[in-house]
Design a protein around this nucleic acid. Structure first.
Lengths: 192, 192, 192, 192
DNA sequence: TACTAAACGAGACGGTACGTCGGGTCTTTAG
DNA sequence: CTAAAGACCCGACGTACCGTCTCGTTTAGTA
């Protein structure tokens, strides 16, 4: 009913998918800075005009690639487990050089496009952030965690620590998630 | 002996400074992505060739601008105070939209140049990180902080939280530094 | 019997006329070079596909616009008068900057399409050429003109002179037709 | 003193010549309409930017190609001979399909650029026109030609006739120049 | 006082990518 | 079966920068 009857040739879903997948490939291989619309179009077997018809900037393409889940969001899937579990999953996921490079690329994309920024960070870190904050609030309510912990701020700290190490290219050692949980929350892994 | 007696016209220190300062100006005004060598040269009143003679890429110019302190590193100067003091200084410094934008620009610069990355993050967050870790270790040793705190990891968490909020464009409320210290360290501001 | 019973929706005469009229408008306003099928379709309120269904190239549209008399052929209507009358009519008609521009546009159209070329020149200059040649042959036969005049060649010269001045953007003075007839035919206006 | 000391890398004469020569080649092979700056640059082995640096439009390139004599102007060289000689030279020169196509291309170029128009026609037909008018005026003064001939108008007619046949793609028979001279001037070839 | 050597400005060069326009084609719904 | 709408691939447009390359000029240090 607010449905405006579609006229003309319908948009090619195949072109859309090919574009987003090519974007992911190129983000992995050349990074955000050397990512070009020309390159995306040619790698996707799509005309440049078709790319411009649907996206306004390369940051928008990257954002949609993420929003569509074409770029797998590291750690977000594990957002139901325990606190240390989430952190270790994030650490493990970002431990692969490929994914770490992707995260850095997304940070670059977000740096010069506020619109993309929100979309990217909400999708990448938002769910994880929410899951962590919920678990922590739970723990505080149950008395399992210190009462002076602000769940939202704690979630900032936990995610921020991981992100900081990725951006500064410092590998996180295997048990980093446990150490981090213990340090911030004063809790041993299984306890929370 | 490792001194290769300088011949010919000496390098113009004025051109060098003008280039780095123009880089800072442009990073502020247009961001890293739209920063061009052409633009830097013309803003600095310097020929493009002179820029290319001394730097290999725009990320290298940005890196040197930081290394030379031409770009003021927010928070690094306060690296002598108390923990909450450092955090509040960082928060206040990054609270200005100008500096926040600069940090995002630098994150973008670091994302696609490992060499610049190290230089930038070492200069930007390294001193602060070291100061925090030292203070925290002190507190733990004095028994003023929980013994299960890993000072290095805690510093990651504190800096990471602030960085995370800047990158995701979330304003940090006035007392955020205090909240953060309390949450991560289980300490009220004055205590540490 | 050679009538192939028409099926389906009949061709829209309105679309056809609108296309040809838009072509004329645009030829006047922007010239042949900047004339585009896109522009014709949009000015005519017709879809691009409809234009392509009925014409193969923009030169063909221009040709049909002429053949249909949508573009008024300057001088052709006067093809029944005296020699100097025809020439003066041509000169007057081509004297207006609008028509002169149109003729130059048609020359451009003819330059890169042999098919359009024949159609255009036959329609534009053919009738005039034939009328002139006929009148001249008459005059020669009657002894009113020099016997060494070849009527076809003389018609070439008369039309060519006018065309030459239009193409080189030289205005023809008021009495140019008389001068031309006198020079080529050795005849004063009323005599032939 | 009006000499503005040249700075920077000097313009490459080779690039300039290559561009003009490629323009000539392409005018011959594809005509003015399908002539593209992209095509000129690539055929000349020159970058597109270099073409744009020195010429504002393709019509300007064509004009300079003519002004430099890179495009050989048919008939202009023969501007010293007798009237019929000039005409026959023109006819012979334009008799080759290659040159005829070139003339049509130049007519198209002139049709949509007044600036190019003057340059082209002055170079192409101007000298011939002047030579013819001079010879005819001579003949009239010597009493060898009819006194009612206006030399300028007669030159228009002679050149116009040849041009008209080229533009309408009519081959001129071998003796066409003689016929034309006889018809317009009332003179047998050798007489003038 | 030259001579040498390097840095400097200016600016042209071959390129790559930009974002746009138009060309022809194809695919859908509406008449 | 035509018309409209509009997406598609393609190729050219004119512009902005890229990184490189001459040039003439400037500014040191030798010689």
């Amino acid at each position: 009913m607010p449905e405006p009857i579609p006229r003309g040739r319908p948009r090619s879903e195949q072109s859309r998918r090919a574009t987003l997948e090519a974007t992911r490939e190129l983000l992995h291989s050349v990074g955000y800075d050397r990512l070009t619309i020309e390159g995306i179009a040619s790698a996707a077997g799509v005309s440049r005009q078709t790319v411009y018809r649907w996206w306004r900037a390369k940051s928008a393409i990257v954002a949609e690639a993420v929003l569509d889940g074409v770029i797998i969001l590291p750690g977000a899937a594990a957002a139901g487990g325990s606190i240390a579990g989430i952190l270790n999953a994030m650490g493990a996921s970002l431990g692969s050089p490929e994914n770490a490079g992707l995260v850095r690329a997304l940070a670059a994309a977000a740096a010069d496009d506020p619109a993309a920024s929100e979309a990217l960070y909400e999708r990448m870190t938002g769910p994880t952030h929410a899951a962590l904050a919920r678990s922590i609030a739970d723990g505080v309510a149950r008395g399992a965690l210190r009462p002076d912990i602000d769940p939202e701020v704690a979630a900032d700290a936990l995610i921020g620590a991981v992100l900081y190490r990725v951006l500064t290219r410092q590998d996180s050692p295997p048990g980093y998630g446990d150490d981090l949980a213990a340090t911030v929350l004063g809790a041993t892994p299984g306890t929370a």
